[in-house]
């Protein structure tokens, strides 16, 4: 019984820690994105509040909380109110399976540095990431606005087209690690990261997660110059903030998934594992911001074309070749 309670307490502590870290990271990623985008466009970005604008996230939160929480007339009120929470929640839930450091030995107990080391952690991640679209879609539909509906439809189509290639790109990784558990996948990359072993799968996964998290160049669901704000057109105040924060939590999650699956997780010379892990996550996040500062938005038919006619056949081919090579090596 005490063992059970200890386990529970450990899980709660880890959950709380991760919750705090992820939320503050998301808040500061917003600032980082604004600063980096600003510098890429020869501006300064926010720099009024505190040194280098470091208090800006706090000010943003205060502004969002004190704004009016507007519910449009004729909207599906309850769904409208629930949807933003769904987005932020699903984004947060994914982090449960991400291992950020090798297991620690404390008080003679092996303490895994992951909230819950599921043996099907990868499938859990896939499931939760595909659930994330529900918040967007239901929010967009419940707003009773044509722009929101268009944004919702776009994000649905995008998710449907890119989830397949994402899943297919992950199978070679699972084949080499021989496990769905993310800890085992990181362990299998001790010699060299999966980036070297599966470069094509890495590229496909990179493009797919960019599309799935609605990052530029795939940010059609919230394309400002076509459909106002997309699915969050009608949202204001902290509900808009939840959508916004959910997007940046997603950025952290996808960065850590990319790190775990392809960049070798916590493995790295000299520095402690957790530092390596955070560095890699931040680097991936920077790359996504960099892409936002660089690339124009795709057209919608180009997006569908890329997903169905390029990425999925490539992913299937990659899977076939990888499986054949592994079989040949084995037998």
């Amino acid at each position: 019984m005490s063992d059970l309670l200890l386990n529970l307490a450990l899980i709660l502590v880890k959950l709380g820690l991760i919750f705090a870290v992820i939320l503050s990271m998301a808040a500061y990623l917003v600032l980082a994105e604004r600063k980096i985008l600003g510098r890429m466009q020869l501006r300064h970005g926010p720099n009024r509040l505190g040194p280098f604008g470091l208090i800006q996230p706090v000010a943003d939160v205060i502004k969002l909380i004190t704004k009016e929480d507007f519910v449009p007339d004729q909207s599906d009120k309850w769904l409208f109110l629930f949807a933003p929470g769904l987005t932020a929640l699903t984004a947060l839930l994914s982090f449960v399976v991400v291992p950020f450091s090798p297991p620690l030995a404390i008080f003679g107990r092996e303490l895994p540095m992951v909230v819950c080391d599921l043996n099907i952690g990868l499938l859990y991640f896939l499931g939760i990431s595909s659930l994330g679209v529900y918040g967007v879609v239901i929010g967009g539909w419940a707003s009773n606005s044509k722009y929101s509906l268009l944004g919702a439809i776009r994000s649905l189509g995008q998710l449907l087209s890119y989830e397949l290639s994402m899943g297919l790109a992950l199978i070679p990784v699972v084949l080499t690690a021989k496990s769905f558990s993310l800890t085992d996948i990181v362990m299998s990359q001790a010699d060299w990261p999966n980036l070297v072993r599966h470069p094509l799968a890495f590229l496909i996964f990179l493009v797919s997660i960019a599309a799935e998290s609605k990052r530029t160049p795939f940010d059609m669901p919230e394309a400002e110059n076509e459909i106002v704000g997309g699915f969050h057109t009608e949202y204001s105040g902290m509900r808009f903030g939840l959508f916004f924060v959910g997007e940046y939590i997603n950025l952290v999650i996808l960065g850590s998934m990319l790190t775990v699956l392809f960049l070798g997780g916590w493995h790295g010379p000299l520095l402690p594992p957790i530092v390596w892990f955070s560095l890699k996550v931040l680097f991936v996040a920077f790359c996504f911001i960099w892409a936002r500062g660089t690339m124009p938005r795709l057209r919608y038919d180009q997006l569908m074309h890329l997903g169905w006619k390029v990425l999925i056949p490539l992913a299937l081919l990659n899977l076939l070749v990888t499986a054949a090579v592994l079989l040949a090596l084995k037998g």
């Binding site: 980096i36 510098r39 466009q41 020869l42 501006r43 960099w290 892409a291 660089t294």
Partner: peptide, 14 residues
Amino acid sequence: FWITLGYLFTKPAT
């Protein structure tokens, strides 16, 4: 990407 990286390290015009 190379060009935007270059701009990142250019002094802002603001």
